[in-house]
Design a binder for these strands. Structure first.
Lengths: 200, 200
DNA sequence: CGATAGTGAGACAGAAATGTCGCAGATGCT
DNA sequence: AGCATCTGCGACATTTCTGTCTCACTATCG
């Protein structure tokens, strides 16, 4: 039976994120293929990691597309984004564990493009008055990314279920951990056309 | 000249965090020590990583102590905590890149103890009404930890200075990224003050 | 000044991981 | 059935990393 490249990449991605330094043998086993096949399809270890990270970036791009972070209403896009946040978490995970990835020009460029895309999203939110302006948009992207990552980490640790991730991330990222947030919880896309605040 | 174990561990820690998979030769070089000495003082690669992580946990413990997260007023302790957040960031960093660490019983126990200590801190804040109660305290610890980590990551990337970290983390963790937070920023010593100088 | 302790440099063997190959077996198509 | 394609298995050579040892050098102390 032929190997589904997508499925293979998924398996490799999981193996790599759960143990970034694993030898190719373990990676292959985790992906249910032989070491030979793994090598035939994705190349040597270095190429393999790069290919996997590239695939993750693709996934993130697709999530961004689906969420419509470029043009759709900011808050709604935000909710769709965190609804499907695993690819983002996974890519950050691998990136942290494998700094060499930043030394691959092509990947670095794509990563930087992704970051800027997300940053523009936050800038848009700031201009609309939804996001606070006293923090650099870059920091907002880091804040979101890191919390998405840790949310899935918590799931992995067994302290939460996958279904809780969007809610947890939404609350912590948007409103923070202080109690007095005073119902600042923004209306979510379900309710009727709630007026989106325009800056005055 | 004799080797200062502390200094050596610092160097190794930096080398490991900036490249978790580095061979011992690189690590030694980064710490300005010969590979032989590194091995003499900290043992083989595995022991080396474990010793370093253990040292990081110690650092975190000390920071927690100094901040007084166990008994001091919650918000003040919080500020002192994020004022000296680098050890926490570094330990999380290494932990993510080296999941095998969790397989060392002693380290796992200490890690779990640290987590619970921080969790109790948040529980205390919740009971005081300072932190929101609709989020699991465990998640609050993950949220803080991840953002501390990403803040220093951002510094490393050159998008912020080390002195900005406390402010960025404080704002994002406590209040979130929404604009309307309505000045819920809790008053605290130093919250409005000028940024504190910090070593590079 | 001599002795002691600690470090660095270099070398070397053993272990581990990687890249590669050939061959057998399974699957699917004609 | 016959053929082409792809995979798994096992083996091998090569490279890389690690653990270890020896020896020379330096600093500190008695």
């Amino acid at each position: 039976m032929e190997i589904d490249r997508e499925e293979l990449l998924r398996g490799v991605a999981n193996a790599l994120t759960s143990n970034p330094g694993a030898p190719t043998g373990e990676i292959a086993a985790a992906a249910n293929v032989s070491r030979a096949t793994l090598h035939r399809v994705l190349g040597g270890r270095e190429e393999l990691v790069e290919a996997t990270y590239g695939w993750m970036l693709e996934q993130c791009g697709r999530v961004f597309d689906r969420a419509g972070i470029d043009h759709e209403p900011v808050l709604e896009a935000f909710d769709r984004l965190i609804e499907d946040s695993y690819p983002l978490a996974q890519s950050l995970w691998l990136l942290i564990a494998t700094p060499e990835l930043e030394r691959v020009p092509e990947l670095l460029a794509r990563l930087e493009a992704q970051d800027q895309r997300l940053e523009r999203f936050f800038v848009r939110g700031q201009e609309e008055g939804l996001f606070r302006r006293d923090l650099p948009p870059r920091w907002l992207t880091y804040s979101l990314g890191s919390q998405v990552m840790s949310a899935w980490y918590m799931v992995d640790d067994g302290y939460a279920g996958a279904r809780d991730v969007p809610r947890l991330v939404r609350a912590a990222v948007l409103e923070g951990v202080l109690a007095d947030a005073a119902g600042s919880a923004a209306e979510t896309p379900g309710s009727a056309g709630a007026p989106r605040p325009k800056e005055s």
